[in-house]
Structure formats: structure tokens, C-alpha cells
């Protein structure tokens, strides 16, 4: 199959704003089927906002956005989603597999208790994300990394074409981050799913990602890692000096970004 010829997401002169305040604008990009894309940028830059547009939870303030040649719509079964925030606390004594089942039946009206396929599907999905042994555990007893696997199964169980993951690595240690990234890469590749993953640290994603969407300074840029992650490009994006450092193992550090983020939030408040 020719991978990038089929467009999964297309954005043309896209802009997002809240109550008239523009978050970012003039975004032009297209993302193909099966691509693994990291979405980077400082806090408050508008990464989650981009997801909200793709999920149809928010309308663009300008421009066009399409998923598989259709405008985004809420409840699109072709989009799977793992949000940043979850309700689950350690008192949540419901089996993990129940959440995965709801990934299929959660939107259905009416009351049917016997499983009609969703139980088997949910079980197979848990197996595919290496979480079979967690099925009967209560959600509240799972660790951060285990929960992310369950959320991944919940998002994938309805067979989406596009997977949106909002900071799934946030509360994990470096080893768990690496494992989860590999897992996401494997399941999305074997199903030819396009994945967009919001992250703070690019390093765990470097071995697997195809391209980077960089949201900052009211703009959205897209490119290959080497095109985006260099001092020259980021300096022109931010319009202020940014330095990209690389150590001998290939780990990357972007310096100056978070400070700039702060300056910007100040400017908005003034």
C-alpha cells in the first residue's frame, strides 16, 4: 500500500481561537495514513486545542480541516482518543476490561447485558496491548503505565483510522515511556493507523516518529525531525533565539522555549 498518498488529515489556513482570542493561525499541513506524528510545543500553545478541532469538539475559527476528506464530527468512529485528564482515582473499583468494552458500547442506548461481540473484542484488544493480565484488575489499582495501556485499548477497540493521544507519557518514568511508545508504534503500524501524540519531551519518540507538528508562538509547523529540531528553524518560528542541543547519544534538548512560553502568557495578560 502506498502510505502517504492517501491523506488522513488536511488543514488549510486553519486557525483556532477561544472567545475571539487567537491561539494559532494559518496552519497548513497534511498527514498521511499510517504516519506517526509527534505534536510538540510549550504549555498553552494550543496542542490540545488542535485535538479538539480534530475531534469535532470545537470549530475552526478560520480555514478548513478534514479527516479522510470529511469535516471533523463529534463521535466519528474513525477517530480514537486518549485524553490528557482522566477521572480515575484509586477508589475506582471497576474492572479495566469494562472501560475497554465501553469503547465499543459506551454510546449505545438501551440495555443489553449479555455481550454481543464487544467482550471478545475487548479481550483481544487487551491482549494486543499486552494488558491481558490487567483485565480483571480494578482501574483504581493500576499504575500510570498500566492505565495508559488500558486507555490505549479503549481507544483502539472501535477500530479507528486515526489515534489521538494527549500527553500519554506525562506521568511515566523514562523506561515506561520507551515501552509505551514502542507499543503504540507496533499496534498502529500493524493496523495502518495514523497516530498523533502530544508530548513534552521528544526523546522517547525519536526512534519511532515520522514527522513533528510543532505548535508555538501562534503558529503550527510540520516537518521531519531534522527539519524542525534545529536552532535555525525554531528561532525563526519563535522569532527569538532558541538553541537545540544534541548529545553524543542523540538525545535532544531545546533551550529557551519554556521561558518564551512564559513571556507570551505575560504578554497576553497585559
Amino acid at each position: 500500500m502506498n502510505k502517504t498518498s492517501e491523506g488522513m488529515i488536511t488543514a488549510k489556513s486553519l486557525a483556532a481561537s477561544y472567545d475571539g482570542k487567537i491561539i494559532w493561525q494559518d496552519a497548513n499541513f497534511s498527514i498521511g495514513r499510517g504516519e506517526f506524528v509527534a505534536v510538540l510545543g510549550p504549555n498553552g500553545a494550543g496542542k490540545t486545542t488542535l485535538f479538539r478541532l480534530l475531534l469535532g469538539l470545537k470549530r475552526p475559527s478560520a480555514g478548513e480541516l478534514s479527516i479522510l476528506d470529511e469535516p471533523p464530527k463529534r463521535g466519528n468512529p474513525r477517530v480514537g482518543y486518549v485524553p490528557q485528564k482522566h477521572l480515575i482515582d484509586n477508589e475506582m473499583s471497576v474492572e479495566a476490561i469494562e472501560l475497554v468494552k465501553l469503547g465499543i458500547s459506551g454510546g449505545e442506548w438501551g440495555f443489553v447485558i449479555p455481550c454481543r461481540g464487544e467482550c471478545e473484542k475487548a479481550r483481544m484488544m487487551m491482549r494486543d496491548v499486552g494488558a491481558e493480565h490487567l483485565s480483571e484488575r480494578s482501574l483504581g489499582s493500576l499504575s500510570g503505565g498500566e492505565l495508559q495501556r488500558v486507555f490505549l485499548a479503549e481507544a483502539l477497540v472501535s477500530d479507528p483510522d486515526l489515534l489521538l493521544l494527549d500527553e500519554p507519557l506525562a506521568s511515566l518514568d523514562i523506561r515506561r515511556q520507551g515501552e509505551l511508545v514502542q507499543l503504540i508504534r507496533n499496534v498502529t503500524k500493524s493496523r495502518n493507523i495514523t497516530a498523533l501524540l502530544i508530548a513534552h519531551d521528544i526523546n522517547p519518540l525519536l526512534p519511532v516518529l515520522d514527522r513533528i507538528v510543532y505548535v508555538a508562538n501562534g503558529k503550527v509547523a510540520i516537518g521531519k525531525p531534522e527539519e524542525i529540531l534545529n536552532s535555525h528553524f525554531l528561532t525563526s518560528l519563535y522569532e527569538t533565539p532558541v538553541e537545540v542541543l544534541k548529545n553524543s547519544q542523540g538525545r535532544i534538548a531545546v533551550l529557551g522555549v519554556e521561558e518564551i512560553g512564559h513571556i507570551h502568557t505575560h504578554e497576553h495578560q497585559l
Binding site: L55, R74, G75, Y81, L102, G106, G107, W109, F111
Partner: peptide, 20 residues
């Protein structure tokens, strides 16, 4: 009637909302 949506929104509000 609302068993599944109610359960879903109790466990995972944001995903339930994205599901429509």
C-alpha cells in the same frame, strides 16, 4: 435506556464526550 452512556461518562468523561 442510558445505562451505557451513564456508565461511560462516569468512568471517562472526556472520551465519552468525544464519542458524541
Amino acid at each position: 435506556l442510558i445505562y451505557h452512556p451513564l456508565l461511560f461518562s462516569s468512568l471517562d468523561e472526556d472520551v465519552a464526550e468525544a464519542k458524541g
